[in-house]
């Protein structure tokens, strides 16, 4: 995977003729994919990318008096751990998305990159992407939103606030003789039966 995201790569990846027309006027200088700061197996996101993602998560899944915030639950880092298991094209698209989201503020009608926005400015920025006139923006926003809320609500720490009791395993299945590590009897009599 290329470490630097060139303008040509971005445009090719976006596949948007409309954005291509705009490209001559857009400041893409901020769209570098920075070198990962850490070189472990978990270095799927560069430090700057992680910062952008954490800021997005802060606005999409903030905390309140009963629910922890997405960043308190480490949603961005959980995604960084998941990213290497995706196919390389999806990984590249995600890096491109973050680069454009942060580096092309004009798409949100602003001159200030996302991570430098005030809280209300960041919300407006996200709204511009949510309702954007380019498919890329709406797709990008929905991708980020689904990622943030999907990982957040998969975390048991988010469940108390919504009254979700969690899985059966080790809780409501206790007493059924269903120890997860035991073999179970064959209940379907037909698996090995002859059929005429």
């Amino acid at each position: 995977m290329a470490e630097t995201l060139s303008r040509r790569t971005i445009l090719k990846g976006m596949g948007s003729a409309t954005l291509y027309l705009l490209s001559g006027t857009l400041p893409l200088a901020g769209c570098h994919r920075a070198k990962p700061a850490i070189t472990t197996a978990n270095s799927a996101l560069a430090t700057t990318e992680l910062l952008t993602l954490e800021r997005v998560i802060e606005r999409i899944v903030p905390g309140n008096s009963t629910a922890p915030s997405g960043n308190a639950l480490g949603v961005a880092k959980a995604f960084a751990n998941l990213l290497p298991s995706l196919d390389t094209r999806l990984q590249e698209q995600f890096h491109q998305l973050l680069a454009i989201f942060e580096g092309v503020p004009l798409l949100a009608g602003s001159l200030t990159p996302f991570t430098e926005q005030s809280p209300s400015g960041a919300d407006n920025y996200l709204r511009c992407w949510e309702q954007g006139w380019l498919d890329l923006q709406r797709q990008g926003f929905q991708g980020l939103r689904r990622l943030a809320v999907g990982i957040y609500y998969a975390d048991p720490s988010s469940w108390q606030a919504i009254g979700y009791p969690g899985p059966w395993i080790g809780q409501r299945d206790v007493g059924y003789g269903l120890d997860n590590q035991q073999e179970l009897p064959l209940l379907n009599p037909n698996v090995y039966a002859s059929f005429r």
Binding site: I60, P62, Y152, A161, G163
Partner: peptide, 25 residues
């Protein structure tokens, strides 16, 4: 409709997401 799936379906985010998900059950 588990929590992840419900939240993914709801077109909400921010404070609004928490308000809607409070009705999850």
């Amino acid at each position: 409709a588990g929590p992840s799936l419900s939240a993914s379906f709801l077109p909400r985010w921010g404070k609004d997401l928490h308000e809607q998900m409070a009705h999850f059950n």
